[in-house]
Simulated assay, not measured.
Amino acid sequence: MLVDLIAGARPNFMKISPIIDAVISAQGEGKDIDFRLIHTGQHYDKNMSDSFFEQLGIPQPDVNLGAGGGTQAEQTAAIMIGYEKLLLEGGKPDICLVVGDVTSTMACAITAQKLHVRVAHVEAGIRSGDWTMPEEINRLVTDSITNFFFTTSDVANNNLRNSGIGEDRIFFVGNTMIDTLLKHRPRFRQPEVWNTLGLKDKEYLVMTLHRPANVDQEEKLKFLIDEIVANTQGLPLIFPVHPRTKAMLNRIGIAHERLHMVEPLGYLEFNYLVERSKAVVTDSGGITEETTVMGVPCMTLRDNTERPETITEGTNELLGTDPKAIAPAMKKLFGDEWKKGSIPALWDGGTARRIVSILLDKV
Rank of each mutant, 00 (worst) to 15 (best):
D361E: 14
T146R: 01
M48T: 08
T142W: 00
L221T: 04
S277F: 04
I165V: 15
A26E: 11
E167M: 00
L360I: 07
R36K: 14
G164W: 06
I326E: 01
H116K: 14
R118Q: 14
R161T: 07
E269M: 07
Q113N: 07
G234C: 13
L319F: 12
V102Q: 02
I137K: 02
D348R: 13
A345T: 13
G285H: 01
R161N: 03
T292V: 08
L259T: 12
W338S: 08
T291F: 02
E74K: 11
E192H: 08
G41T: 09
A124K: 02
L259Q: 09
T208G: 09
P240T: 10
D154Q: 14
L268E: 03
L205Q: 03
A213H: 07
L259F: 11
E269I: 05
A352V: 09
W347Y: 13
A213N: 10
G164I: 03
S342K: 15
V63Y: 09
Q217L: 04
A329T: 08
M248T: 15
K362R: 15
M106I: 00
H256W: 12
T180K: 08
D168E: 15
G125Y: 03
A78Q: 09
V274R: 01
T180M: 11
L346F: 15
R302Q: 07
L209V: 08
A279E: 06
T132E: 12
R127A: 03
H184G: 07
T245E: 05
G28H: 09
V122E: 03
R353Y: 11
F171L: 00
F171R: 05
D4P: 03
I225S: 05
G335Q: 11
G314R: 05
L2G: 01
M14G: 14
H121M: 08
V117D: 02
L237P: 04
D303R: 11
E337R: 13
V102D: 01
A120P: 02
L209Q: 04
E203R: 13
L259N: 08
G57V: 08
L237Y: 05
C108G: 00
S357N: 15
T180C: 13
E309C: 10
N158K: 15
V296T: 10
G166W: 00
G286C: 04
H121D: 06
N162C: 01
A67V: 06
D201E: 15
S104M: 01
G174K: 09
A329V: 10
H256D: 12
N12V: 08
G198Q: 09
V98T: 07
P243Q: 12
L88D: 03
K246W: 12
P212R: 02
R276P: 00
G90E: 07
S49L: 13
N147I: 00
E275P: 01
C96Q: 06
L333V: 10
T76A: 07
E74T: 07
Q72E: 11
P264N: 08
K220N: 10
I170C: 00
P236K: 12
K202Y: 09
R354I: 07
W194F: 05
S284E: 05
V173R: 02
T146G: 01
K340V: 14
A7C: 15
F35D: 02
M80Y: 01
T288S: 14
L268R: 07
G285P: 02
F334A: 12
A279R: 07
L86E: 10
P191S: 03
L86V: 06
F35Q: 05
I252D: 09
